[in-house]
Amino acid sequence: MRVVVAVDSFKGSLTTTDAGAAVRAGVLAARPDADVVVLPVADGGEGTTDCLAAAWGTPLRRSVTTDALGRPTTATWALSADGARAVVEVAAASGLPAVADVPADPRGTSTLGTGRLLVEALDAGAEEVLLCLGGSATTDGGAGLLVALGGRLLDADGRDLPPGGGALTALDRVDLSALHPRARGARWRLACDVTNPLLGPRGAAAVYGPQKGAGPDDVAALDAGLARLAAALRGATGVDVADLPGAGAAGGAPAPLVAALGATLEPGAPLVLGEVGLPAALAGGADLVLTGEGSCDEQSVQGKVVDGVAAAVRAAPAAAGAPVVVLAGRVAVAPAVLAAAGVTAAFGLAPGPASLDELRADAAPLLADLAERVVRLVGRDAR
């Protein structure tokens, strides 16, 4: 019996590596002779760095940088074993939780700290950089990223703007003459699961600004600043990012990377699943595919890991007919919705009445037990 395991992290309980190990233990408890292939997975958001570092077999790198308010901090990123690929999460340096200890400053937060991680990746020799969007505390249109990479944001008097999206209302032009020497030659991939444009009622400021503490006046000022940035980037590069689907992610962070460096926006889960080798694993055949995450809900089948795994199984002739079973902390989606996405069934961890704290504390043994029970049931007729 060949079982492919691709389980996302259970936030607050298990990393993807820990979850995969627990599922593997459960599978082997039911079928000691099973061929179990375990892949660390993520959806392109939080945890992607850990996932890819595990898949690449490389240690996490820890760098000194600054948080969204410019305070010293450290953040992790990863480099592939051959040094050619790097992964950085916006939230690692510029995330919202790291600045939750002080009153919100929606106009002053910056992605400069994340930009410094990108510079470290380029200096380490990376030829391809994957930037994972999501969880940011910023609405600076990626201005901090561009400044860290050597770009300049200038007002009408030729003075450099201070950090933060609020300063962009004074932006006159963008100077790209001193970009990092390796920036333009690198391949930039942006893991993005939203389609919001940079500007307007569905843009970065209007939709995500309030989540970062922006009131109505802040939203109006930030949107005006982002409009100035879009115009300045268009003037410097000829590329218009104002209405680009996805440019509003992470407070507009994709805008300068797309305009100045040709970055591409890609759905996060399929990108990561391809990187960790799921298609190749399924090409070897599968009698059962186990996936999952902390909460299985309707979002799970809308571009998240569960959806990506089910799609990969459908695309793999060698895995045709293999049941796709979700193991989750909780299941809050109708079976018909799962079936429409190619998922055979979904099961929650709780063996009976239990509090969230109890489930989190016992997540690993509960997940192993659930995997064992599923294999004993589904695997009865497997070879």
Results as ranks from 00 to 15, higher is better:
Ala310Ser: 11
Ala311Lys: 11
Ala311Ser: 09
Ala312Thr: 07
Ala312Asp: 02
Val313Thr: 02
Val313Ser: 01
Val313Asp: 00
Arg314Asn: 01
Arg314Ser: 13
Arg314Lys: 11
Ala315Glu: 14
Ala315Asp: 15
Ala315Leu: 12
Ala315Arg: 15
Ala316Asn: 13
Ala316Val: 14
Ala316Met: 13
Ala316Cys: 08
Pro317Ala: 06
Ala318Glu: 15
Ala318Asp: 07
Ala318Leu: 09
Ala318Pro: 05
Ala319Met: 04
Ala319Glu: 06
Ala320Asp: 11
Ala320Cys: 08
Ala320His: 14
Ala320Phe: 06
Gly321Ser: 10
Gly321Lys: 08
Gly321Met: 13
Gly321Pro: 05
Gly321Ala: 07
Gly321Asp: 10
Ala322Asp: 08
Ala322Leu: 08
Pro323Ile: 07
Pro323Phe: 04
Pro323Gln: 10
Pro323Ser: 07
Val324Lys: 09
Val324Asp: 08
Val324Leu: 07
Val325Trp: 01
Val325Thr: 02
Val325Leu: 10
Leu327Met: 10
Leu327Asn: 05
Leu327Asp: 07
Leu327Ser: 10
Leu327Trp: 05
Gly329Arg: 08
Gly329Ala: 13
Gly329Met: 06
Arg330Gln: 14
Arg330Asn: 03
Arg330Leu: 05
Arg330Val: 13
Ala332His: 07
Val333Pro: 01
Val333Phe: 06
Ala334Pro: 02
Ala334Gly: 09
Ala334Ser: 15
Ala334Tyr: 01
Ala334Met: 05
Ala334Arg: 15
Pro335Ala: 11
Pro335Cys: 03
Pro335Asp: 10
Ala336Met: 08
Ala336Thr: 15
Val337Ile: 10
Val337Pro: 00
Leu338Phe: 12
Ala339Tyr: 03
Ala339Gly: 13
Ala339Gln: 14
Ala339Val: 01
Ala340Tyr: 00
Ala340Asp: 15
Ala340Glu: 15
Ala341Trp: 03
Ala341Pro: 02
Ala341Cys: 04
